[in-house]
Amino acid sequence: MMTLHTAQRIARLQQSDIRAMTRACERLGGINLGQGLGDLPAPLAVKQGAIQAIEANAATYTASEGIPELRVAIARKLARDNGIHADPAAEIVVTVGATGAFAATLQALLNPGDGVLLFEPYYGYHLNTILLTGNEPQFVTLNAPAFTLQEAVIEAAIRPNTRAIVLCTPANPSGQMLSQADIELISRVAAKHDLLVITDEIYEYIAYDGRQHISPASLPGLRDRTVMISGFSKTFSITGWRLGYVVAPAALARAINLVNDLYYVCAPAPLQRGVAAGLEQATDYLYQLKHDYQLRRDVLCEGLVTAGMRPVIPQGAYYVLADISEFGYADARSAAMALLETTGVASVPGSAFHQSVAGERLLRFCFAKDEATLRDAADRLKKFRPAAN
């Protein structure tokens, strides 16, 4: 009988708590506020653009960097909304989701053993992709509720093999947004240590209380060393379409596209056309998005407060971290399971986003749901009473 082996590169990987809680929620028939599964409808222009492409038999491979129409639409959007002027022919690569963009970037631009600085709480897929590519994750803990960047703390975390910093703004899971001062701080550190800056800006249009998203690559000192990653899953509520993109200096974009081609060949052809149509026509939708999500944020946070939790009010994205330390559970996973079993509402343990013990006092909730579902979840949460411990 053949001995079955698995690759050493996956030895440190585990199924994400996000997916584990989703499956537990499905078994119980609960309301899933764990995974970032947006329930809002996609804009009509996006859907119609994809339907028309399918009906026109746009089913063949595209160029690995994406169809020209979409790259031009992305370039227009970058100039209009991000203050970034990018050559659509040389500096933009369409990818299979932002996660595909991140994987291709690490493979193309870093060597095994290179250190990558992550700010915790971090997005778990960032960490696991870093591990899978053979890079070394290095951590800077940002403390709730302010999650403040401190230059001296970042400097202390940098090692001789550190080659890159990952920034997520608006952040998953904290909802924090980098300010101009934060980005200038990162620019100084990156220049001093000659670091690549990789930004995940997938939630760029979801910002609250009048805040404006700032793309780090819009700063002159960062443009030449930044790989900007974003996409359409969250903006257009099309998480299953798997469409993202990279914006980078031409030499870096070429390298990333080599890996993108090898791993994925190209992003889905008709869906690229749908998104291109959406970017050209859905401007009003993009600006309305933040208002709709702010209403949902406030509904959920009210429910969390009534349940005895202390939510960290997010500045952007569609997640909220809530402090559950007063409940007395041994760890965040126990608290999340108790909440699911007693209310039917799924969350994600904060430990999924931390290496440090700071995550054991937090749960993450997603409020990208239709309003009726979210109000039902909030009502259930208001009735939660922790079991005696």
Rank of each mutant, 00 (worst) to 15 (best):
M1H: 11
M2T: 12
A7L: 12
Q8G: 09
R9F: 08
L13E: 00
L13D: 00
S16K: 00
D17C: 08
R19W: 11
T22R: 14
T22D: 12
R27G: 13
G36V: 12
L37H: 06
L44P: 01
Q48F: 04
A53V: 08
A53R: 03
I54H: 00
A56W: 01
N57S: 08
A58D: 09
A58V: 08
T60Q: 14
Y61R: 15
S64P: 12
E65H: 13
I67W: 01
L70E: 04
R76A: 10
R76Y: 12
R80C: 04
V94L: 06
G97H: 02
G97D: 02
A104V: 07
T105Y: 04
L109G: 09
L110C: 15
G115L: 00
L118S: 04
Y125N: 11
Y125P: 08
T129H: 02
L132Y: 15
G134Q: 05
G134F: 09
E136L: 13
F139L: 13
A144E: 14
L149C: 09
A157W: 02
R159D: 12
I165M: 09
A171E: 01
G175R: 01
L178T: 11
I186T: 08
S187G: 13
H193F: 14
I198E: 02
I198P: 12
I202E: 14
Y205E: 09
I206S: 04
A207T: 15
Y208Q: 04
Y208S: 04
G210E: 06
G210H: 04
I214Q: 10
T226H: 06
V227N: 05
G231Y: 04
F236I: 08
F236S: 00
S237H: 06
I238C: 06
I238V: 14
T239M: 13
G240Y: 03
G244I: 03
V247T: 03
P249L: 03
R254A: 11
N257E: 15
C266P: 11
A267Y: 01
G274T: 05
V275T: 01
A276G: 02
A277T: 12
Q281H: 13
A282N: 03
T283K: 04
Y287R: 15
K290W: 05
V299I: 15
V299M: 06
E302P: 00
V305R: 08
T306V: 11
G316M: 00
D323F: 08
D323R: 06
I324H: 10
E326R: 15
Y329A: 08
R333S: 10
A338H: 15
E341K: 13
T342S: 11
G344W: 01
V345W: 03
A346G: 03
V348K: 02
V348N: 06
P349A: 06
G350I: 08
G350D: 08
F353N: 12
Q355Y: 05
S356N: 12
V357K: 11
R361C: 03
R361Q: 10
L363T: 04
A368D: 13
K369L: 10
D370E: 14
T373P: 10
T373Q: 07
L374Q: 05
D376G: 03
K382I: 00
K382E: 15
F384C: 07
P386H: 09
